[in-house]
Amino acid sequence: MQAIVTEDLHVRYRAKNGQNVHAVQGLSFEVNPGEIVGFLGPNGAGKSSTLKCLMGFVQPSAGSCSVFGLAAGSLEAKRRIGYLPEVALYYPYLTPLETLTLYGELQGLRGSRLKRAATDLLEQVGLGQAMNKLNRSLSKGMLQRVGIAQSLLGDPEVLVLDEMTSGLDPIGRKELRELLKARQAQGTTLFFSSHELSEVEMLCDRILLIHQGKLIEERPIQALKDELRQFEITYQGAVSLVDLALEWNELGDNTYRARFSDKQNLLKALDRVQREGRAVVDVVAQEGSLEEFFVETIGRAA
């Protein structure tokens, strides 16, 4: 059973100016149990609308979405999901502990189990010292941690996180990454939207890229990294690698540099240089930029 399935999902809104906005247009994808999937796209691509559909906040205009085979938005489905909204201002006159207690009670947790769960989660997200301060006195990053803690209440099987790193400092991001990795190790499925491509790269198993409400790329992150990785060699002596390299040029002083997009061509080039008895000065592997991939792919789709 897939953790998340959307089939030909369409979401239409009537905007405030009266015009119809087609936020999601025929989106179909699946998320496997235990997988971490990053949901990417430029602003207004339809990410939040899709997540809202998954949570039942918005009804699809057409198509469907489900969580473990249960209709999205049903009480049964919501029992199995934790959700983090984008930048929420949690009740200013409640403390983080009271906020989590409120959400926990709605989740069906009671008594000492609820208190322990709320306290443990607040400590896990680094709010152990601030759990009894009013939310209004907390910084944006600390409120985001309250949000992360509430999404984990009741040990959900699926986590749906909208812009999860918003407001977090680098330490907070690292801690969150570790926390989510630990959850994944316990079998939790993660589906999140983000503009932080470095986070996506470090955390995801797979990415889905959408633009104007349509899925334009779906790729395992490792395959994408391999595809984007480039190799560069610097060597001395005039050995032509023009047939193998992406770029090949002379640096002067009888020194040459060649760039390759795949490992096979690199190995062939090294073999050729060595057979010619030339000296290899340097070999460098350059990780590709997900940002460039993102910009190029969106540019092609636009």
């Binding site: 029992r79 709605l106 069906g108």
Partner: peptide, 8 residues
């Protein structure tokens, strides 16, 4: 959103 995300 966190309220409506609960099974209520």
């Amino acid at each position: 959103y966190p309220l409506l995300a609960r099974p209520i």
